[in-house]
Design a protein around this nucleic acid. Sequence first.
DNA 1: CTGCTACTGTGGTCAGACCACACGAAAGCA
DNA 2: TGCTTTCGTGTGGTCTGACCACAGTAGCAG
Lengths: 268, 268
Amino acid sequence: MADDTTALGAAPGETSDAPRAWRTVLDHVETQLLAGALRPGDRLPGERALSTELGVGRSSVREALRVLEVLGLIRTQAGSGPNAGAIIIATPSGGMSALMRLQVAASGFPVADIVRTRLILETAVAADLADATPQPDLATSNALLDAMDSPDLTPAEFLALDAAFHLALAEASGNQVIAATMAGLRSGIEGYARAGLDRLDDWHETSARLRREHRGVVDAIRAADAPAARTRIHEHISRYYAETFIDPTPTPDDPDRRPADREHSAPW
Amino acid sequence: MADDTTALGAAPGETSDAPRAWRTVLDHVETQLLAGALRPGDRLPGERALSTELGVGRSSVREALRVLEVLGLIRTQAGSGPNAGAIIIATPSGGMSALMRLQVAASGFPVADIVRTRLILETAVAADLADATPQPDLATSNALLDAMDSPDLTPAEFLALDAAFHLALAEASGNQVIAATMAGLRSGIEGYARAGLDRLDDWHETSARLRREHRGVVDAIRAADAPAARTRIHEHISRYYAETFIDPTPTPDDPDRRPADREHSAPW
DNA sequence: CTGCTACTGTGGTCAGACCACACGAAAGCA
DNA sequence: TGCTTTCGTGTGGTCTGACCACAGTAGCAG
């Protein structure tokens, strides 16, 4: 369809219309994706090729590719051969994590909101797993649970396994959006979670309780007892945060964020 | 490779360790953000300044900035004055939308998973709003509802208002993470939603029902009847998708996606 | 004091040049 | 013939230097 565009489309200075050059590239890739011309596993044209093909500079192409890379859409590899170049991979978790992490860092996402969202999602996941007709595969989760029983784990290691466990549950539900979101939420509050360790009085006792609660959740799922799974995971998460965070209250008061309806005091 | 030459931190070729230059920039910004040295509203150093400061080329700085921009962390503005340059803004919805949209396009996110996630989130939001102690502010939602009553709306326009309504509810809950996620989910399936319009037998009847259901949800929230709010929003959403999508079944079968536990037949 | 005009700094883009790398084909050797 | 080595080639990764358009601002003219 006539790529009109002409060579003028993206001149150096660009004015009036001005679709930022890198946007052109991004849109082009998205279109190709939507049209099915590009599927996971495929290789994108080389940067130089895309550059001439779209009539933009290579740097602009690179800016777009960088975005795609961070968003988890492509993987780049220098060199030659079938594995080289930019190939399409749909790995959302990475992008989701980056987004959450940075937004939290920039106080765009209050930690409390993240925790609350996590609560909602995990509760639903647990109930979902319990109700699943073909008993869901919890092998990964169980393996992690066993690993957590190891007595010589540092709190940080335990925490990592804990996070993996929760993520494994989300993945077991088969919902990729939730799994990716959970991964993102996790990494968004990772720093706080680690910092919260110091706040615990008795780590030994806490870890024991966490392990117990984890087993409880899995047991409820196995027993196909959705209500119990819901309750247990809910309490598990909310209790932990109640212990490790001083005050999970949302952002104090930003000059440009209306503190309007914020105190919904949801019971988590 | 005897003579590695280079030896300088970030020489052109870079080897062994090789933290990709743009990553350096990204990490730097994130660190500054975490340290509080950079807050929303602040201006980042100029590209050239950052370039020399971090010892990387301007192109690398730009690649990083582009990522930050797409992620909704900064806003760039050419020219001079206080509004020029790259200033920190924490606007997650944009990045979330881009992420979702592209992942769906690349079949990284099955549409069904998105719908299901939306269902979970919105159900929770509705219940949350109903339980909120200070009656939440539903002014925006109501205004949209009224706008939707206009008889001369094209299906597409109606759909846009509908989306805005649902988003307004999420925003009213005060949870920014959910609001942003909802915005992302929406734009991820926007194309499908529009396409689904053709599938409707009687648009007039459908829109009337949708309006009725919307009011019903808001009424339940006003009445602080969380269970009703839950049920109504759930039915509202699931019914619509059941009507507009042929087969909400996840991706057929991708060579690299195990069709494992996927049929959890969630009741939507 | 007012209004116009240069100036300056900022992002946006492009073009060209290297580098390191990884693969594959050709050349060399057994 | 078959294996090893070498060289060539194409790819991403980066840097440098150069314009352009734009938006304030300082400074000059009225």
